[in-house]
């Protein structure tokens, strides 16, 4: 078994949005929509402010609420790496998965079906990194198998402080941010 994850170094990310452009180009994401985006979180009190830039997308949760609520089985977990995918032919566009996702990572494609990040499964199956990871000029994004202790993502998580988004939601997200 494998469990794909993405580790993003927030100290290196400059919010350039190359990952966003690469995803749109690679996956032919329609104009006005996006599968990944940049979040800019500022906290603290002036002058001791802290800024964190994050490249965000579907968290490919190990406990995905979008899969549990899907009435047709269109939302499913791919056997390769536990990637959460949507079968466009099975999707009826009921939007239950959109409402179930606490990260608001999904949207309705103009053709009517639910759409989201696929971890570029078509590239990963050929041994390539997802498009966003492969173009990052700051080299802040890493992709790999969490179940392999020798993988880059496992080593980074073992050696650096990190956090995931909304762990309290109980979805067990597989995107981690190094801090």
């Amino acid at each position: 078994m494998s469990r794909f994850a993405m580790v993003i170094d927030t100290h290196r990310c400059v919010g350039c949005q190359d990952c966003v452009v690469a995803c749109k180009t690679e996956n032919n994401v329609p104009e006005g929509y996006t599968r990944d985006w940049i979040a800019e979180e500022v906290h603290g009190e002036f002058p001791t402010l802290h800024l964190e830039l994050r490249s965000e997308r579907c968290n490919h949760c190990s406990n995905p609420p979008c899969v549990a609520c899907c009435p047709t089985g269109a939302s499913h977990v791919h056997p390769l790496g536990g990637v959460v995918l949507v079968s466009h032919d099975l999707c009826i566009g009921c939007k239950a998965c959109l409402a179930a996702c606490p990260y608001d990572a999904r949207f309705i494609h103009p053709d009517g079906y639910a759409d989201k990040c696929t971890f570029c499964i078509h590239r990963v199956e050929r041994g390539l990194d997802p498009a966003c990871v492969s173009v990052c000029p700051a080299h802040c994004m890493h992709f790999g198998d969490l179940d392999d202790p020798r993988s880059e993502v496992s080593r980074l998580l073992a050696s650096r402080n990190h956090h995931a988004l909304l762990p309290e939601a109980g979805t067990n997200p597989n995107i981690f941010y190094l801090t």
């Binding site: 996006t34 800019e40 965000e56 959109l98 999904r106």
Partner: peptide, 8 residues
Amino acid sequence: YTRHNPLI
């Protein structure tokens, strides 16, 4: 966020 997905 830089995201502006319709309906979201």
